[in-house]
């Protein structure tokens, strides 16, 4: 009898110990956390896979529309960029034209034409360019061409809609000029890139360094006072009667855009 009671008590004890262990495990934070981790890892993997599938599905579904949207956005960006460039260009163009207008008002020319440079001479031995003004605009051979307030050339060949201008740097360019300070009359001849010379300058003529050389009305119907260049070098060659005067011109072909044509 006693043996049976002992056995029952032992069973109850085991039971209570078991219950205590279970309750400990259930209410223990450590095991709770551990269990969350246990369930979390596979769930995360599963949810990732599901999400990936969903994303793939959504991507496949929206790919076309997204691409189209992207394309239209890119197009809009390009249009905006172009507009920006256009505005910048218009601003520059406006500045250049304003300068030309100032020049016209300063010299009081009654009639001037604005031409656009459309090309340059294909021949390396010719320094000239083409403008979009021709006979239709009443352009004539010998009209002066001005840019940035300086004489840069003279119209040489006139077509119906276009003309060819010989620049002041060309060796065949010749014009009668005078010096601004002393009013000495000389003969200008183009020489090379940004260079020209004054020919037949007598020793008694008063030519000064840094003096401006400008157009004159003597022996021509050209408007006077348009600057051509600045005196940069004065030298005398031994055994030669005339002095050698070097002029720096202001014709720079690489930035040429609009020019002013002054009809005679």
């Amino acid at each position: 009898m006693l043996f049976n009671v002992k056995r029952k008590l032992l069973k109850v004890t085991y039971f209570l110990i078991g219950i205590s262990i279970v309750l400990f495990i259930i209410f223990s934070n450590f095991f709770k956390g551990l269990s969350v981790d246990f369930i979390g890892v596979p769930n995360k993997a599963i949810s990732s896979i599901v999400e990936s599938f969903n994303n793939l599905f959504v991507y496949l579904q929206d790919k076309k529309s997204l691409l189209e949207e992207n394309k239209s956005l890119k197009k809009q960006i390009e249009i905006l960029k172009l507009e920006n460039q256009k505005n910048f260009y218009l601003e520059k163009e406006n500045e250049a034209l304003k300068k030309m207008l100032d020049f016209k008002n300063y010299y009081g020319f009654s009639h001037v034409l604005v031409g656009k440079v459309i090309g340059f001479s294909p021949d390396n031995w010719v320094d000239g360019f083409f403008i979009d003004l021709g006979k239709k605009e009443n352009i004539k051979e010998g009209d002066l061409v001005v840019a940035g307030g300086y004489l840069i050339g003279i119209v040489k060949v006139v077509g119906q809609n276009f003309s060819e201008v010989m620049s002041v740097n060309d060796k065949n360019f010749k014009i009668t000029v005078r010096t601004r300070k002393t009013g000495e009359i000389c003969f200008y001849n183009g020489l090379d890139y940004k260079k020209g010379v004054l020919k037949y300058v007598r020793p008694e003529q008063d030519i000064r360094f840094s003096d401006v050389v400008e157009t004159t009305v003597i022996n021509s119907s050209n408007p006077e006072g348009i600057p051509i260049g600045i005196v940069r070098k004065i030298s005398t060659k031994e055994g030669e009667f005339f002095r050698e005067i070097e002029i720096e011109t202001f014709y720079y072909p690489y930035s040429l855009n609009y020019v002013l044509v002054i009809p005679r």
Binding site: V117, I118, G119, F120, S121, P122, F130, P253, Y254
Partner: peptide, 15 residues
């Protein structure tokens, strides 16, 4: 080819 030689784009771009 002559047109390319004389073009404003060619002149200004390559300098």
């Amino acid at each position: 080819l002559i047109l390319i030689q004389s073009s404003i784009f060619f002149k200004k771009t390559f300098n």
